[in-house]
Structures are given as structure tokens and as C-alpha cells.
Design a protein around this nucleic acid. Sequence first.
DNA 1: GAATGTATTGCGAACGGTTTGCAAGAGGCC
DNA 2: GGCCTCTTGCAAACCGTTCGCAATACATTC
Lengths: 140, 140
Amino acid sequence: MELEDILRERDFRLTRPRRVVWDVLSESERHLSAAEIAEEVHRRDPGINVSSVYRTLALLAELDLVRESRLTETSTWEPAHADAVIHLVCENCGATRHHDAALVEDLRAEIARTADFSPSVIDVRVSGTCAKCPAVSAAP
Amino acid sequence: MELEDILRERDFRLTRPRRVVWDVLSESERHLSAAEIAEEVHRRDPGINVSSVYRTLALLAELDLVRESRLTETSTWEPAHADAVIHLVCENCGATRHHDAALVEDLRAEIARTADFSPSVIDVRVSGTCAKCPAVSAAP
DNA sequence: GAATGTATTGCGAACGGTTTGCAAGAGGCC
DNA sequence: GGCCTCTTGCAAACCGTTCGCAATACATTC
């Protein structure tokens, strides 16, 4: 479904800030911080204000179109993905990748069974070193 | 090893703010926000300033004595625990619990094998409902 | 296509948690 | 106890985010 339809369905208007913020997010292959989003949005349309970026992010999150991750000290945004996904964060270059792991569903079952807790969302964040950054090893 | 020894070993002094912050953290069974820590520290010794709390938290984290978690919008602190641990965060009452899960190690192996990525720390955060907060269900 | 009613925006100021600079204070070694 | 230096308390600065408000621009109706 198109952004416009999703907004309309809930009586929101499709405005330029919303369009641009959404484009930036959906065209990006990686997580973006609010600052990065604001910067790119501003590049595309200098007339769009930071506060609109924040307001739009909040709205899109409310509509489950984007997702905020708090993987590192600054939180980042990405289009929402329904599937259980693992975030791989490279400690060296900072890149964030997704990885599918069947085991996440096993994990859910195990938790439900053993923890006296009813899981809804499972977030897995893995720090480590990506293939491009080999063996940085223990740099002090 | 005692706090004092760990500090000494690295040429840091054992001071009252450090003592009290550490006590608060290690006596607590749950994660605490910086504000909660500051509040409890202040209760025990009104002369200790917030900035010392922050400085101490940074130091203790540097020494790997405490761990900062960014599970929700405000980050929380707890004594460091080496073992792979799952955080269960109740969406209703906000309580954070730990849960051991053998599967985390399987997950590590799976990632190492399939993702072209060398994992170091794995954080699993599970949102859901704890046993004490039964069936809040879909409140709009 | 213009007019209209209202959601949305841009702007600038406010906010709140965290950090910092600095002089006063307190650890710890002699 | 004295001295040297690390730490602290304090208050101001910071900075990302939020808010209030008048101006703007969507979407709808004619």
C-alpha cells in the first residue's frame, strides 16, 4: 500500500515533509539517525524544518511504517520490517546489517515456555566485526 | 574483588560518591535509570551531586563494573554480568527481568556460521507481558 | 479551477537530561 | 600531619528534541 493511502486511511494528509522523510528512509539501506535524516531531507528540500522531521518520524512510527532502534547511543530509524530480524552492528565501522535467523522463533518458544512471560517483540542486537573489517582485535 | 581494589589497581581513588553509587547499583535487583540512581544516592547522602553520579557511572562502565542498557527510551544501569542474558521488559509495568537462555549460544553459532560476521556481544531484548500483568491485551 | 475549513508547517523559544570548567575539597602516600 | 593531585560540587553551557503559535498548504466542495 502506498504512503498516501495509509495516511489517508487514518485521515492524515500527505504533505511534502512526510513524502520526503519517507522517501529518504525507504531509499536508505541502512539505519539512519534523526540527524542524518534531517540532513538528507534538508538537502532535498531546504524548506523543510527539523521539527517537521521529528513530527513525521513520530507519526510514521505511530503508523508502524518506521521503527526506531536503540542499538547504540543515538537511536536510529528504518522502515518497519515485520519479520524477526537480527541486527548486526559492526564495532569497527558502525555499519548495521540485518540478518534472518530462524532461531529467533525458537527463542520465542523457549521464553514462552520457561520464563513466565508472554513475548511480543524480540530484538536481537549483535555486536561484533563485519567481514569488511577483519581482525581489528583488541585495540586499546 | 572489591570495588576499592579494582579502583586502586587502575589508580583511581575510592571516594564517597563512587562508594554510594556502587552500593546503590549492586543492591538493586533491577535496572535503574540515572535519575533513579541519583535519587537514591541523594537519599543516602544529600551532599553528593548529580554530576558525580554521572561521572561515576561513566567510570564504572569504563571499568566494566556496570553496564548501560538502552532497552527503552531512557537508558538504565545495572552491575555488569558476563553471562549471556536475555532482558524481558514488561510493556505494562516496565519491569526488567533477566532470563537465561541456552539458545543464545546456539544463536551465536548460527550467526557466526551464516552471516559473515564475527559476533562478540549478543543482546536480546524481549518485550511482552510479565506474569504479574496478565492479559492487558490490545488497549488502544 | 477557485474558495473554504482544518490539519500541518516553519519558526523560535523552551525544555530536560547530560556534560563541562573551575575553584574548593578530600583521598592517599610520605 | 602535610602535600600533591585526583575528585567533587556548583552553576553554567550544551544539544537533541519538543512545543506554542501564527502562517501555510492540503483536500474537499462547489
